[in-house]
Amino acid sequence: SEEEIREAFRVFDKDGNGYISAADLRHVMTNLGEKLTDEEVDEMIREADIDGDGQVNYEDFVQMMTA
């Protein structure tokens, strides 16, 4: 549901600035027990970053979650 997606976005957007940065993503993945290299984190950001601004905004996140 849209509310679940919004809630998930809030979990990833640690600093609440409306964007998921590589640092935000790394933090959440580490908490989930996933040890990722910087390259892996950057690749995840690139794949999710639809508009190419280097971070994942809510619209990018929705597209990723509903793809």
Rank of each mutant, 00 (worst) to 15 (best):
L36M: 10
F61D: 00
Y19H: 05
I45E: 01
L32V: 05
T37P: 03
N57F: 15
R26V: 14
Y19D: 01
D49K: 15
M44N: 01
G16S: 07
E7Y: 05
N57R: 15
Q63F: 08
V56H: 02
Y58T: 02
D53T: 13
G33P: 08
A48I: 12
A8V: 04
I20M: 04
D60N: 13
G16H: 08
E3T: 10
I45Y: 05
A23K: 10
F12N: 01
V11T: 08
F61S: 00
E39M: 10
E4N: 09
E47F: 15
E7T: 08
A67N: 11
Q55V: 05
F61T: 01
K35E: 07
V41C: 04
E59M: 08
A67E: 06
L32C: 05
T66W: 10
I45P: 00
I20N: 00
T30F: 11
F12M: 06
A22Q: 10
T66A: 11
N17G: 05
N31A: 14
I50D: 04
R46D: 04
V28L: 08
N17D: 06
E4C: 13
F9M: 05
Q55P: 04
A48F: 08
E4S: 11
D13E: 02
V28R: 00
V41Y: 09
Y58A: 02
A22F: 14
R6Q: 03
F12R: 03
L36Y: 15
G16P: 00
S1I: 07
I50A: 09
F12C: 04
A22Y: 12
A23S: 14
F9G: 00
M64T: 04
M44P: 00
D42Y: 09
G16L: 09
H27C: 10
E3Q: 11
I20T: 01
F61M: 06
D49M: 14
V56W: 03
E43V: 09
S21Q: 05
V56D: 00
R10D: 02
Y58D: 00
A8H: 06
N31Y: 13
D42V: 07
E39G: 07
G18M: 02
N31W: 14
E4R: 13
Q63V: 09
R46C: 06
G33A: 11
D53V: 08
A67W: 01
E7V: 05
A48Y: 07
R26S: 05
H27D: 10
E47M: 15
K14V: 12
E40D: 07
E7I: 05
F9Q: 00
G33Y: 13
A22M: 13
T30Q: 13
D42T: 10
I50M: 09
A67V: 10
M64L: 11
A67C: 10
D60Y: 15
M64A: 06
L32K: 03
G52H: 12
R10S: 05
A8K: 09
V28Y: 03
M65E: 00
E2H: 09
N57Y: 14
A67D: 08
I45V: 05
L36D: 01
S21P: 06
L32H: 05
I20D: 00
Q55M: 14
F12G: 00
L36S: 03
E59R: 05
D51N: 14
A8L: 11
G54E: 05
R6D: 01
E39W: 12
R10K: 12
E40I: 12
M65Q: 03
L32Q: 03
N57L: 13
N57D: 03
M44W: 12
V56N: 00
N31H: 14
D24E: 08
E40H: 06
D49E: 10
R6E: 02
F12L: 05
D51W: 13
F9R: 00
F12P: 00
G52M: 13
Q63G: 07
Q55R: 13
M64G: 03
L25I: 13
E39I: 12
E47G: 15
E7H: 10
M29I: 14
E39T: 08
E2W: 15
D13Y: 01
D13V: 02
K14H: 13
V11D: 03
V11E: 11
T37M: 04
A22K: 13
D42F: 08
A22D: 04
F12H: 06
V11Y: 09
M65T: 02
E43D: 10
V56K: 00
G54W: 04
Q55F: 14
M29S: 01
H27A: 12
D49Q: 14
R26E: 05
N57I: 06
M29C: 04
G54D: 06
E34Y: 11
A67R: 11
E47I: 15
A48E: 03
A48R: 12
S21N: 07
E2Q: 14
K35P: 12
N17R: 08
D15H: 08
R6P: 00
D60M: 15
F61G: 00
D42R: 05
D60H: 14
T30Y: 11
E40A: 10
S1W: 15
K14G: 04
G54L: 04
F12E: 01
E3H: 12
I45Q: 02
M44S: 02
D51P: 05
D60W: 15
N17W: 04
Y58P: 00
E59N: 10
D49P: 07
N57S: 11
E34Q: 15
F9D: 00
Y58L: 07
S1A: 08
K14L: 10
N31I: 14
D53Q: 10
Y19N: 03
E43Y: 13
G33I: 10
D38Y: 08
A23P: 05
D60E: 12
G33M: 14
E34G: 15
H27M: 10
E2T: 09
G54V: 04
E3A: 12
Q63K: 14
Q63Y: 09
E39A: 12
I50N: 05
T30E: 12
S21D: 08
L36P: 04
G18Q: 01
F9K: 00
N31L: 15
